[in-house]
């Protein structure tokens, strides 16, 4: 298993990388962690003519709190996220998710930005970012722009990134206290892509009413999916088992899973319902 020949550059600055993208257009691919791209190239399902390796560009790997956001540099490795104290304390959802992404070696290479920019509904971060209402920062020839996560995924492996843009940062609004979040996916074995995955973040007010909620679904739709109707059921309400059941039912109805080796549509819908219920409970526990 060997990739087809290609040319390669490892620019030292973002500007250089962007101008290479402009120069090579569709023939170029960005190489970040490479753990989605290189296997595709080895199997010769993908044969880009030019790889732009962004790993040598400084300043793209960080996790910091700033301006009311948790900012994650696009080149931040999954393992950095896994072992970050900020994350562990305020965003246990990432600890839930990273543990289930591939395996430790892959997480040492794989990047958070890559996991999102790939536009694959089977990846885990998209659903998490939907739940957290993140913004994606893209940098292109005209400078930076921030894209709300809800406008980022718009087709099968398609994102709002323009051909000469690079995803450079993910911004997650830091929620108020009394917020809980959680993620879980069912997998056939450890490291597998999700049979179904559900991310939930919810914020309670002093009286225990759900002020805000985000629910994202993994691998049960052509694109990463927000369970809007389920959120609407709970927002502004005191959360009861009946409401949770209703939210779970809506999520399982609103997704659009395809039948494959992991299971048929009915099974996956059912799993979405179970996971929505369980993740709401887990997020509630963490919020209290």
């Amino acid at each position: 298993m060997i990739p087809a020949p290609f040319d390669y550059a490892a620019p030292a600055t973002l500007d250089e990388a962007i101008s290479l993208l402009e120069q090579h257009g569709d023939e170029a691919k960005i190489l970040a962690g490479g753990h989605s791209l290189i296997p595709m190239m080895k199997l010769r399902f993908a044969s880009p003519e030019f790889l732009i390796d962004i790993n040598n560009i400084p300043g793209l790997s960080y996790i910091r709190e700033e301006d009311g956001y948790l900012k994650i540099g696009a080149l931040t490795r999954e393992s950095d996220l896994e072992h970050s104290d900020i994350v562990r304390n305020k965003f246990p959802i990432f600890t839930d998710a990273t543990k289930l992404i591939a395996d430790p070696q892959v997480r040492n290479m794989g990047t958070v930005g890559g996991n999102i920019a790939h536009g694959d509904a089977a990846n885990d971060h998209p659903a998490v970012m939907l739940a957290l209402r993140a913004e994606v920062v893209a940098t292109g020839p005209g400078g930076q722009r921030s894209i709300p996560i809800d406008e980022f995924f718009y087709g099968f492996y398609m994102t709002a990134l323009q051909p000469s843009e690079i995803l450079t940062e993910i911004r997650i609004p830091i929620p108020s206290a009394s917020t809980g979040n959680a993620y879980h996916k069912l997998e056939r074995k450890v490291g597998d892509y999700a049979t179904a995955g559900v991310a939930v973040q919810l914020t309670l007010d002093g009286s225990g009413t759900c002020q805000e909620i985000g629910i994202g679904l993994t691998n049960v739709n052509p694109t990463p999916l927000r369970a809007t109707r389920s959120e609407d059921v709970l927002r502004g309400q005191k959360i009861t088992d009946e409401l949770i059941a209703q939210a779970a039912k809506f999520a399982s109805e609103d997704c659009s899973p395809s039948s494959d080796l992991r299971g048929d549509e009915a099974y996956k819908r059912s799993m979405v319902g179970v996971l929505v219920k369980r993740m709401i409970h887990k997020a509630l526990e963490r919020a209290r």
């Binding site: 069912l186 056939r188 049979t195 992991r262 299971g263 048929d264 009915a266 099974y267 059912s270």
Partner: peptide
Amino acid sequence: ITPYKVWKVLNEKGIVQ
């Protein structure tokens, strides 16, 4: 025997939907 196969059985028996 996978969870999916077991789920189908539970589904047939009305244990899960």
